[in-house]
Design a protein around this nucleic acid. Structure first.
Length: 585
RNA sequence: GGUCCCGUAGCUCAGCUGGACUAGAGCAUCUGCCUUCUAAGCAGAGGGUCGCAGGUUCGAAUCCUGCCGGGAUCGCCA
């Protein structure tokens, strides 16, 4: 049950009645009428802008429309108060019984509460992480990983058929560098003194096990192989090993993709990149041309030459993009176009890519590619996650690959745990930079939002542990609780809590439409706050405690509220992938 | 130089994609609340010309334009 949708419907009905009676013009566009909680509580529980939106379309004064609508709505028995305020806002205040029914609905619907069907089972592909298989993931990757995973959860929750996808860049020069680095480690494992790892190769220790494995399996035979025969084998071994590390890193965050898509597979067998270029050529979007030398940074290697270009400027890009390198191989972008064409061929019309900040400049051309390849029939949303800066108790964590002080994602997860990492990565809008403090996120205090939210859930659960001594029959699953008469819930703090619970479906829907899972984290913080507030009031005023030993009816009603609260906290935490603990001691 | 992102209280950030004369949280500062359903919490106070200047609108932190400041990126890396 979604209160906002419910009230929205009632207001639309009132407006339609007015139209039928001739008080309002027929054929009015009733879209963009919104029901929202007003910022100022003095403006009631919910406010509606219908009169302001319709004024111009109906050629009437907003207040006149508002008064007409109010006349119809006043008969609503759920309303305690209905004001026409300001320029023509409808301010609605509801009776407690209205909010109490929401609590009943939450308990009945259980895990289905706030689920929606805005996805209508349509397929959506969420591509996230897509880190190069060149080593362990860093913290920045982790942000994209958590963001993408939570977004995928959220979209699944509102009725999309979600595919979680990882694009492995297992082609190109970087992979060759990885293979050569692994070869050095192989020689090292055979007892050779390899000295310093040359610049351009990967110096990390994580390649040592790869070298040892190669030595175990092949002995010295690889040494005498010509490089063109050795390299493919090294590539495959090294990429597989790196991918295994990355998958473990992701598993530590409870992240698992449905599809791991290999860039190399695009050109093995059928050359999908060539097919893609051919298709775009048929559409007149590929041509031979020259590019201007980029300004603003020195590029000594620049050579002016004719090359194969994709006409991305036809789709709002500021320059056309090359498809072939000077050595005749495909550019990364050409392969990526083929990859997106592949997604389209698998039936996806909704695509979402999660990028790191360093790919921000790449965004327009990918959108251009998808527009060109789908003839504008698919939508692509690209979410850019900004950088993560690591801190420890307020001090920046200095990192250097060379000095071996590089902190990986896995280091962080191992140190502070999965839940704090997941929560904090979402406790900031994706396009804002994020400061992650290793000390703060494990702190058990109200200054740590992860703890604060989890603690609210644990507290709710503790109420049910405590009630056993007084009303043994009122366990969490008991019919006495689920079916309790909720009319005793009249306290202002209780009403506030009920309103906060009622806001959840609207919040979920908005977050899903905007592709902004961070809203969940902020909502959960607010809900936890409403609960802690009511809890502490019980310390000062014993009659506000949830458990009232001499009043079973009141206790049952309050327990129903506590249970609904725990249920919504758990549901929200589940979407962002954070554990909802039973207790925290 | 081009493009993209950001610029809201001393600090860190929300602001539901245009709404109400007093723009919200948290931290920090100051003042209160433990014979306790876990005070691992709660209540209150002070603090902001929403970077600047225009424009659109009944109405702008939110949309448009131009500046200023910070970051990312700019064929042959991925």
């Amino acid at each position: 049950m979604n209160v906002y949708a419910l009230v929205h419907g009632r207001i639309l009905d009132a407006l339609k009645t007015l139209q039928a009676e001739g008080a309002l013009p027929a054929g009015l566009d009733l879209s963009s009428i919104e029901v929202v909680p007003p910022r100022d509580p003095a403006h009631g529980d919910l406010a509606c802008n219908a009169a302001l939106v319709l004024a111009k379309r109906a050629n009437m004064k907003p207040r006149a429309i508002a008064e007409l609508a109010a006349g119809k709505l006043r008969a609503d028995p759920d309303l305690a108060k209905l004001d026409v305020a300001g320029a023509g806002f409808l301010n609605l205040t509801f009776r407690p019984a209205f909010w109490q029914r929401i609590v009943s609905a939450i308990l009945q619907e259980r895990g289905a509460y706030a689920r929606a069907d805005i996805g209508r089972c349509e397929k959506v592909d969420v591509e996230y992480v897509s880190a190069n298989p060149a080593g362990p993931m860093h913290v920045g990757h982790g942000r994209g990983a958590v963001f993408g995973d939570a977004l995928a959860n959220l979209l699944a929750f509102v009725g999309y058929e979600v595919t979680r996808e990882y694009y492995v860049n297992d082609a190109g020069a970087q992979v060759d560098a990885l293979a050569r680095s692994a070869f050095l480690r192989y020689r090292e494992a055979l007892g050779e003194e390899i000295g310093e790892i040359p610049a351009g190769l990967y110096p990390g220790d994580y390649l040592r096990p790869v070298g040892r494995a190669l030595a175990r399996e092949h002995g010295p035979t690889l040494l005498n192989l010509p490089e063109e025969r050795r390299l493919p084998l090294l590539r495959e071994t090294a990429v597989a090993a790196m991918l295994a590390i990355i998958k473990e890193d992701l598993a530590a965050l409870n992240i698992k993709h449905d599809v791991i898509f290999s860039e190399r597979s695009l050109t093995e067998g059928e050359d999908e990149v060539a097919e893609t270029i051919a298709e775009l050529r048929r559409k007149g979007l590929v041509f031979q041309g020259r590019l201007a030398k980029p300004k603003g940074h020195d590029d000594a290697d620049w050579e002016d030459r004719e090359q194969t270009l994709f006409r991305s400027t036809a789709f709002g890009d500021d320059v056309d993009r090359p498809l072939m390198k000077s050595d005749g191989s495909y550019t990364y972008f050409a392969a990526d176009m083929a990859y997106h064409r592949n997604k389209l061929s698998r039936g996806f019309r909704h695509l979402i890519n999660v990028f790191g900040a360093d790919h921000a400049g790449y965004l327009t051309r990918v959108k251009a590619a998808v527009a060109a390849l789908s003839d504008g029939k698919a939508d692509l949303d690209i979410k850019v996650c900004q950088l993560v800066r690591l801190f420890r108790a307020g001090e920046p964590v200095r990192m250097s690959k060379r000095a071996g002080t590089f902190v990986t994602l896995r280091d962080v997860v191992d140190e502070v745990g999965r839940d704090p990492v997941r929560f904090m990565m979402l406790y900031r809008k994706n396009d804002a930079p994020l400061d992650f403090d290793l000390a703060k996120v494990v702190e058990q205090s109200k200054d740590n939002p992860v703890f604060y939210v989890q603690y609210a859930h644990a507290r709710a659960k503790s109420v049910f542990r405590n009630v056993r001594d007084v009303f043994p029959q009122m366990c969490e699953e008991a019919a006495e609780v689920a079916g309790a008469d909720l009319s005793p819930l009249q306290e202002p703090g209780e009403i506030e809590l009920m309103k906060a619970l009622a806001a959840f479906p609207h919040l979920v829907e908005g977050a899903a439409r905007a592709h902004e899972p961070h809203r969940l984290a902020f909502y959960l913080y607010d809900l936890a706050s409403a609960f802690h507030t009511q809890w502490t009031k019980g310390n000062e005023s014993p009659h506000l405690r949830f458990i009232q030993a001499h009043d079973g009816k009141l206790t049952a009603a309050r327990l129903a509220l506590v249970r609904a609260n725990a249920q919504v906290l758990a549901a929200g935490l589940a979407i962002i992938g954070v554990h909802a603990p039973e207790e925290m001691r």
